[in-house]
Write a protein that binds this DNA or RNA. Sequence first.
DNA 1: CTGTTAGCGCCTTCAC
DNA 2: GTGAAGGCGCTAACAG
Lengths: 346, 346
Amino acid sequence: MTVTLADVAARAQVSPATVSRVLNGNYPVAASTRERVLRAVDELDYVLNGPASALAAATSDLVGILVNDIADPFFGIMASAIQSEIGGPGGRAGGERLAVVCNTGGSPERELTYLTLLQRQRAAAVVLTGGAVEDAAHVAAVENKVRKLADAGTRVVLCGRPPSPDAIALTFDNRGGGKQLTEHLIGLGHRRLGYIAGPEERTTTRHRLEGHRDALAAHGIEDDPKRTVHGRYDRQAGYDATLELLRRDPSLTAVVAANDTVALGACAALRDSGLRIPDDVSVAGFDDLPFAVDAVPALTTVRLPLSEAGARAGRIAMGREEPPPGGIATVHGELMVRGSTGVPRE
Amino acid sequence: MTVTLADVAARAQVSPATVSRVLNGNYPVAASTRERVLRAVDELDYVLNGPASALAAATSDLVGILVNDIADPFFGIMASAIQSEIGGPGGRAGGERLAVVCNTGGSPERELTYLTLLQRQRAAAVVLTGGAVEDAAHVAAVENKVRKLADAGTRVVLCGRPPSPDAIALTFDNRGGGKQLTEHLIGLGHRRLGYIAGPEERTTTRHRLEGHRDALAAHGIEDDPKRTVHGRYDRQAGYDATLELLRRDPSLTAVVAANDTVALGACAALRDSGLRIPDDVSVAGFDDLPFAVDAVPALTTVRLPLSEAGARAGRIAMGREEPPPGGIATVHGELMVRGSTGVPRE
DNA sequence: CTGTTAGCGCCTTCAC
DNA sequence: GTGAAGGCGCTAACAG
């Protein structure tokens, strides 16, 4: 029924071994023979059997990319960049690698499940993106999985995620970025800043919040717990949190959000409360996603080089670029000052 | 080295076949035996070999999702919904299916490559999302691939893409949506409307534009070719196109964009030109992505039920929902009137 | 309900 | 540079 390598061999009048060799291209084959084989492949419309190939070779052409939320451009941009470096010639058999993105939805269980699935598929490499959940049991479980993958020859790269043993890590300097941002606000004269943090148990949340607090502390501003609210990384959370912050302290002059999406929700809440941005309240985000510049007023935020970092992670995963010394590199953000922040009122 | 099914069998003192049966769960096994096997699996930390399994069974647990641009929430939202119906129990061996999203970047070649890769992996199902390229050769090539996949037992579902033989299709009524939108504008009194279309060769572009023209024709408004500009589906294209439209005809009172992202660019261009929205010029988008409501003013647009359609496509791909009669279903959009459109000036 | 027996299609030494 | 042979780990009939 389906065409196999043996069929191709028969048509090209060579042995199956030879066909395999021209397909994989990693073995000397006479030009004329190769020609004949390729023609047979074409005529028969032959498609390699991936599973059979992976079974025999004990490795596959699959490269997994794990993301927390595929509907969030933060991850989409990174995934796209990673993938652009992974697709294209370079794999076994025919040259292409199958870069596949897996959406964990931020769930630790799904993350582990996908890691197992990828392990099961004998993936060539795996890239884990975005912040991690800090629960000790989960961290241990992931480290365990990563070690198994590494032992099995799967290269594991972390992109925008804190370091972990047995994996190469490109971490974002969320703490430094958070600090810069808050210092910018403090520099403008703000003293009563609300902070909308992400979900409690995530590293990204913690690091950005710590940066914010570092800045407050450095300037002798009391860190009133009333001025921090936690929520999801989405617009609605930003909206709700802003109303809550305003309720707790109507004298706030600035709101720092966990990311740009949350900041957008904050802006909406402020507008709906009759407050002007930045005249009454300044707003800042994080990430500098494409829409940040289109907000009205444009969002002050910290730009993270998502594309660049993703591309680099992809190259490292493919073994096309040297891992950073020590296996860890820190990627810094850049403060983008725009119209949403200004001097405080009064 | 690595633990195999035979090792598990030995430890549980049963035959490999029995282990396979409890793992796949599709065959009666005594509870006590199952218990013993599961314990052995756990103790040995056994992970099924996907390729071997797929080879023997002639099908894999992989489900492919093709998207044009993973960094675009339009696709991210659909992919997320599709995947939510695909992951989870139901697959062979251990219950999980590996839903993988492949980013074609809108390139016909990459689309075909991914289809081949998925065919090579003996994917259980494939979902193609978003508009298609209309080039005849490419259409034929895709149809050919789809037929091959279908013949090999891979279920193929199209989501937000025009029908094709051998595949089940959930199409978006882009034409109807486009018509509704333009009629809304005409109803407000607009007569000089600019239109920013997407890339020329895409079905989505063509259908939305046709809907727009249908509306103009239905109201006896001349369709001046000067008032239509093509560009990519991104913000910058919207920005540039708007300046161009304004240059060609400064008397425009409304701009209809191919999608929300483009509309955002249009808004920016208008603002930068000193024009107020909607007082001077009305703006409309398409899709109703999450950020549309956060634009200032909020964007009038056509909501496409991306999540619902994606979820349905996912269920159909998994065989958990009946395909629509005739294999084709049309999904309609809903006009969302917001602040970005109003009566024309003067 | 469980064991036995053949492959699934390919890669990879090993010879020539 | 090319062929022959064995086996990768699992599943799917068949028996029993």
